[in-house]
Design a binder for these strands. Sequence first.
DNA 1: TTTAATAGTTCCAGCATGGAATCTAAAAGA
DNA 2: TCTTTTAGATTCCATGCTGGAACTATTAAA
Lengths: 403, 403
Amino acid sequence: MDGVESDVSSLLSAPSKAVAIEVLVHGAQSRARLARRMGLSPATLTRLVKPLLEGGVLLESDAVRSPGRGRSSLPLDVVPDRYKFVGVKLTEEAIYAVVTDVRSRISDQVRVPLGSLDVSDVVAAVHDIVMDFQSGMDQPLDAVGVTVGGRVDEGEIVADSSFLQWRDVPFRSLLGAALRVPVYLDNDVVGLTKAQQWFGHGKGYSSFALLTVGAGVGYGLVINDLMIPTSLNPLSHYPVDPSGPLCPLGHRGCMTAFLSSSSITAAVSAAHGRFIEYDDVLEMARSGDAPAVRVVQEAARALGRAASAITAFTGVKRIILSGEGIHLAEAARSSVDEGLSEYDTDSALHSELIVRPMDFTEWARGAAVIAIQKTFPRSSPGGTAGSEAVASVAYSTAVIDSE
Amino acid sequence: MDGVESDVSSLLSAPSKAVAIEVLVHGAQSRARLARRMGLSPATLTRLVKPLLEGGVLLESDAVRSPGRGRSSLPLDVVPDRYKFVGVKLTEEAIYAVVTDVRSRISDQVRVPLGSLDVSDVVAAVHDIVMDFQSGMDQPLDAVGVTVGGRVDEGEIVADSSFLQWRDVPFRSLLGAALRVPVYLDNDVVGLTKAQQWFGHGKGYSSFALLTVGAGVGYGLVINDLMIPTSLNPLSHYPVDPSGPLCPLGHRGCMTAFLSSSSITAAVSAAHGRFIEYDDVLEMARSGDAPAVRVVQEAARALGRAASAITAFTGVKRIILSGEGIHLAEAARSSVDEGLSEYDTDSALHSELIVRPMDFTEWARGAAVIAIQKTFPRSSPGGTAGSEAVASVAYSTAVIDSE
DNA sequence: TTTAATAGTTCCAGCATGGAATCTAAAAGA
DNA sequence: TCTTTTAGATTCCATGCTGGAACTATTAAA
């Protein structure tokens, strides 16, 4: 609990950190189990765990009986309050921020409306939020993660965010100068995907995809435990049905045209001659309003088709459907399945859909996970030759259209 | 050259093998260069190279001058004839077989028409071909790779091959019993993709895709240097244009409906009221025959759309377009580009298309590469926890529809 | 009470690695 | 021509990670 252990990265060996991450992600477990899971000898595990216990990263809980004979195991778990992180998600209307522990469990959260999109104003607002959190805590903050919708380069610069109307803003260094804490920056879908990977519905899957539906369409991809930099603009405007509606960019039947909240509300509003909220559209669909039913069903079918395409093109079966607008998948699940199986030839290779609505707090948690993962970095599992070339690409371009 | 070094796998350490593969794939280079590329010290490289020289795997060539001062480097190269492999590609009409060196350079090849699709007949035919090759060689064969269109399980069993009309045939053990040489089995697109990865147009790219057009549509995907098991049936019947023609399975506007040779010849033949060969269709398109032009252009546009989708869903930019039927992409390149950019919003993230026609000999070379890669296995670069679970999935299902 | 099975530790030999010093080779400059 | 500089390659050694073997600890079953 003392401040001796200032930094994980510098004081722990890479294998020790790998053990910590294993416990972090897969929960409390004994040395023996860790050894088996990680393909290491019990002897090695004893050695790797020692500095983690001394550093206060892990804690040995009481002995636990397992069925059968043999000595009880001593589960190792992370010390929940050993680290504290802040996650910040920027949207055009508000800043959503959370305080989490190392397992990304939220202990505090706040929503601050955004008065101005001016860079310095936003920096100041985030600074104030973090300071506010800090003052209410009895321990120092370990890191802050910030995510935005749009293109983020090298974790440093908001290269292009249409909704914030920012171009080439070195947000990380700006905020880092204002705070005394390490600041990390990334795309919002990347954050949400990584949160799912370590702590959410992607846990235990070496490959999965995340598809979010809300103001825009987001897409995150993890293959072989590695986040794939998927350039998202192309996907959010991917043609699902060339005879479908138009999106703001003029594409007929693209995913945005079918799935974005604005497209859906616009279609139903037009039919009824008055403006109708997104949630009301779903409600109306449920109660049988013909235009609403039609629009929601078509959107759901487009979603199913997109999921089917993801599996076809990436081989990934597990797909998490999420975002503020994903309730439409619950409202019209059969249409989703319809779109999913429309062109399916091999039933054994079905996509496995998980529908999990997520609000903006969840996005902020994703931002916190960016900070957590940077604090507990994986020791380059890819291990490819030509490290310099790889380094320049890593964590670079993951873009979504947050229009 | 003597038979002392019987097996690479058992006598060389994993890092040494990695060095051999580096030289194999990226060509002759000095120890210093290898050290830089692989992130190792010069000292380590000297040590790793020694057993490779002693084992006759690598050879030191004459000193080569580099611009500037300093000692000349001593390039290390593989001894081309140290190993010999046979690659066999089974199609419904014939067996295509090649003899290659460790760089997959073809030194001999043969095409044997297939009289019967009976399993024992095919085993006998392949056996005879391999024996024939053997008798003409002054050194023993190191391994045989066989590829087939269809689903191959665990590298052991042809689970389902529609064109050979085989189901659950343990081809590897059957052929292995007949031959005295290690036999490896895999899907044909996997072989072709791996050949591209190590020795072809995917060399130097950690991620790329291969799309083949011929009797059917094939798709191979490599991400972060790892072959992704893409279940191909879904892709070959992926809907490109819901208003397009029908495929044999009744899908409207799927990739097979647009791109398979039979669909193309059928469409043009119907228009002209007589049967027209595939190559003639391309010829007629070139000379302006309206139906042929139309069909070829639509097929090319579908190809472009498919390529665009690959980039959108996988983030992979480099796409190799190939197969016996890919000449249509050359004949109508502008239509390919049209389909590629139809829904493109971000020009910086364009797909990078490489069009390379490949005949069946090239597919046989792919089979040889299966044998080469099994002989020089990579030491599990993924390195994920839970090795047992990973092992069962690796090299399993990569399917194409070879109908 | 003995035996078997599992968890965890200690000790040590093996081995891969990289740093430092050294040697070799070639070009540039005096 | 000799010296200096630069870079490739080697040798030697300290370091550190690893797993095997032997051991202790704990628990259930015979």
